[in-house]
Design a protein around this nucleic acid. Structure first.
Lengths: 341, 341
DNA sequence: CTGAAAGCGCTAACAT
DNA sequence: ATGTTAGCGCTTTCAG
């Protein structure tokens, strides 16, 4: 049973290899009788065609690369994990394999490009990674790829799928305002600063529409290259003469760390400061208080990503810009200020 | 630049394809001059050999399958995530690709077997999944595989890498005893019941060595097929006439859920009940109280797994049974009982 | 040291 | 409907 080939099967069934190949691929061109006979032999012998030959011939690998951010501190992939689940499920039903990579440095970039040129995969999905040079190369070669939650410019140049940050920020802040908060802070990533216009705009517009003033000191950029990011930013936010009664965190990670930080300071959440997050990560229901957040269906996001890439890989039409909507998940980190609007 | 083949390179360099192949694979058999010339052309053209051909010829795919438990509720892969990171890093430096799968049902099992027969991978690592039938098939075919944290019997039949549960349980309970606890509960999985002897034994021995009595009602099996597992078990544990002052949780997940549950009940942790966990998951430092736990270096575990599988795949000697040791990570979920030992 | 040529296992024209 | 055969792109004997 070691090394059966299509030729062996053909011989055993008394037909040509073509016939076997057709049966294997469910193609027309063989009589029902032949098909049955061949299929029977295949089943009996447990024959499975060599996958590499198939890929070599078809010049397609039925595999996609998923590029992840190599994670520095563990929290960072809670989001990607769920997206991956979605990608994984969808890829399975689409008959694709998925293999992971990272592109942290030059070496890894060329490794990825080599893998692509070597035809290891037919497409690539970037999750939270945007590597300008790699993307340009891919574009130049017309190689199918999709950026998921990468904060790339929405100019239609790069196909992307991301959270509707504008809307999420807008609604989160409006929610805080509704709860009576008028002193609102904002914790956002320092990365991709130029691309955060969406979130920023949502925040600003919500403030304006709620007639709430904007205090620059309460807008803090979170530095990532340290353990427990957001701690620093929170410290700065609280260093002024007055402090916000609520803060919108562009990620639940920030919210979790911020909550931990202010708690350590002796402040109570949400009594002294309320927090609303974004993403709805696994940790969010385990913190105390549990984090109220704008949740995203990350698994669906993954499925959608894979489905979109599939379309690209198969020359079907696809939406170059797709936004995931969010849902408010009320937990315990936002208090209502009596007498509020 | 689309479809350069080794033949093109050979022509351009004025040599045979053999020479190019040798250069590509760094094999002896070409003069330094030729090597240089060929290499130059390769670099100029950016030629990358087709990966499938190589795999077809060598009859090896330089790929490994990683089988994960399809996760029902999100918490369950916090452990696997870190292990994956390790596998991923090690595989990269070993020149292997890794592709993911699951074997939840019959269909998926045969998909995996087909992939293996089709030579998609040279080995497989199971993480927290033990599928008897699949394992038997693999064994019958002498196909390299390794079980990571699968709770398989340690009879040497199946190569495994897991946490040293006996030691972890033993030390956790001893620690509780040292802290003055004499009423100790135990939360353990209901899955793989027959394989939990290690943990059970560690628990029992520690109890005995600490001269602490064992109360059956405080030993609860955690059911998994519900959201927030451990809640149920905790409820049962507290339903008796007296309750433990501390409980050892066979997973931080249980600890997190148990803490949340008792907190909701109005009990305080660790004042009323202390908890010590196992694994040191991401959530563990975000719960309140943060969970004191027996930590495992999961990333290293992943690297070790990949390295071991590599040895198996390449006919090198390997340890069939490997245990990861744990480290006590003291956080805030265990209190000291005054007057204790 | 180098090149011709025979595969690796399968797909798909092209005949029959 | 079925069989023949020429590749797919590379590795690897085996002569030269």
């Amino acid at each position: 049973m070691e090394k059966l080939t299509i030729r062996d099967i053909a011989r055993m069934a008394g037909v040509s290899t073509t016939a076997v190949s057709f049966v294997l691929n469910g193609r027309a061109g063989v009589s029902e009788a032949t098909r049955q006979r061949v299929q029977a032999i295949i089943n009996e012998t447990g024959f499975t065609p060599n996958i590499h030959t198939r890929r070599l011939n078809l010049k397609r690998s039925f595999t996609v690369h998923v590029v992840l951010r190599q994670y520095d501190f563990s929290l960072f992939n809670l989001f990607a994990m769920d997206v991956l689940t979605g990608i994984f499920r969808e890829s399975k039903s689409l008959g694709y394999s998925v293999i992971f990579t990272s592109v942290e440095n030059e070496a890894e970039c060329s490794e990825l490009m080599d893998a692509i040129h070597g035809k290891e995969a037919d497409g690539v999905i970037f999750i939270q990674v945007f590597h300008e040079k790699v993307v340009q190369l891919l574009q130049a070669e017309q190689f199918p790829f999709l950026c998921v939650d990468c904060h790339v410019p929405r100019d239609g140049t790069v196909p992307l799928l991301e959270v509707d940050y504008y809307d999420a920020a807008y609604r989160a802040v409006r929610y805080l305002a509704q709860k009576g908060h008028r002193d609102i802070g904002f914790l956002i990533s320092d990365r991709h600063a130029q691309f955060h216009r969406q979130t920023d705009a949502g925040f600003d517009d919500a403030l304006r529409d709620s007639c709430v003033p904007c205090r620059p000191q309460w807008l803090q950029r979170v530095i990532h290259n340290i353990p427990q990011p957001a701690t620093n930013a929170m410290e700065k936010m609280l260093s002024g003469p007055s402090r916000p009664t609520a803060v919108f965190c562009a990620s639940d990670t920030y919210a979790a760390n911020a909550i931990r930080y202010v708690t350590k300071l002796g402040l109570r959440a949400p009594e002294d400061i309320s927090f609303i997050g974004l993403d709805d990560l696994v940790i969010s229901e385990y913190t105390r208080p549990a984090i109220t957040t704008m949740g995203v269906d990350k698994v669906r996001m993954g499925r959608l990503a894979m489905e979109t890439l599939y379309r690209m890989m198969n020359g079907q039409p696809f939406e170059p810009i797709q936004l995931m909507s969010t849902t408010l998940i009320e937990r315990d980190s936002v208090r209502t200020i009596p007498g509020g609007t």
